[in-house]
């Protein structure tokens, strides 16, 4: 907990500890809600934790602070992930996560910027976040504001045409204050991405669109930190991290299971999962 405006965390073990906590909170809120997206929240957890706690400037006490870095969860169904991170960062009391998906809660099934300060833009209809991130990056640049913009997309999500429209835009306008991430977990709802609608060669596609592309193990904290650092040094073009991840990461019986895309843990699964995460 704390105001994350300076003194970013670079200690790998501390980041891993936060990621464990975030995973447990994701599972906790999903279990209480009884519905929601487990697999994709867990797969992107390490990258999102690293972005928030090792790089981003923000102030939970003043969510619209002008100098903050911006984060867009384009894959909005991973809402539990961003809520767990926001709870960790101190945007709201940790027990707020128990209201996930309940009537009247600011923690909607998919992120809602009008209800939850700290969420920059509402998402949930896939494919839209990168465009919004570009717009923010352009606006910041016009103002001479050095803040940066982060955007996490799913690998199924990049099947949306709008993603490639936005990919062109970022390169055309030489937007270098953006760092996008593809959570490359290999699965979408109807099965493996390569079976449903192949996206490979993903690296080459982004490179051909004019992006600086970095392929990493999206669960290796050191690799994540290195890539995020590298992105800040790239000038004149946008950067993207292809984070190779495991859907359901951290809980053996959820890992690589297409069924756990949109299913919450049962109480019993939750207990077993927490034990696994603690013992890891």
């Amino acid at each position: 907990m704390g105001v994350m405006t300076e003194g970013k965390i670079t200690d790998i073990n501390e980041l891993k500890r936060i990621a464990k906590n975030v995973r447990i909170n994701i599972l906790h809120m999903l279990t209480l809600a009884g519905s929601g997206h487990t697999g994709g929240s867990l797969s992107a957890a390490d990258v999102a934790v690293a972005i928030y706690f090792s790089r981003m400037k923000f102030n939970p006490g003043d969510p619209s602070w002008e100098e903050r870095d911006r984060f867009v969860l384009s894959k909005g169904h991973a809402a539990p992930l961003i809520y767990a991170i926001m709870a960790e960062a101190g945007y709201f009391r940790e027990d707020t996560i128990e209201t996930l998906r309940k009537t009247g809660s600011p923690l909607q099934g998919h992120p809602c910027s009008a209800l939850l300060p700290g969420i920059e833009i509402s998402t949930g209809s896939l494919g839209q976040g990168l465009s919004v991130a570009n717009g923010m990056a352009l606006g910041l640049r016009l103002d001479g504001n050095p803040a940066r913009v982060y955007c996490i997309m799913g690998d199924g999500e990049v099947q949306e045409g709008q993603v490639w429209e936005a990919a062109m835009t970022a390169a055309h306008y030489k937007i270098d204050n953006i760092c996008a991430v593809v959570d490359n977990n290999g699965l979408q709802i109807d099965g493996p991405v390569e079976k449903v609608m192949g996206i490979e060669p993903l690296h080459d596609k982004w490179a051909a669109f004019g992006w600086h592309v970095m392929d990493i193990d999206g669960h290796n904290m050191q690799e994540i930190l290195d890539a995020l650092g590298e992105a800040e040094t790239v000038k004149g073009r946008p950067s993207i991290i292809i984070a190779n991840t495991t859907k359901g990461k951290g809980v053996s019986f959820f890992e690589n299971k297409v069924e756990y895309h949109g299913v919450a843990p049962t109480r019993e699964e939750f207990d077993r999962a927490v034990k696994e995460i603690h013992n890891d």
């Binding site: 990168l130 919004v132 717009g135 352009l138 016009l142």
Partner: peptide, 14 residues
Amino acid sequence: QDMIGTAAGLALTG
């Protein structure tokens, strides 16, 4: 589609 999203992002920076 990208135009509308980009416009929203620009609006978010004032």
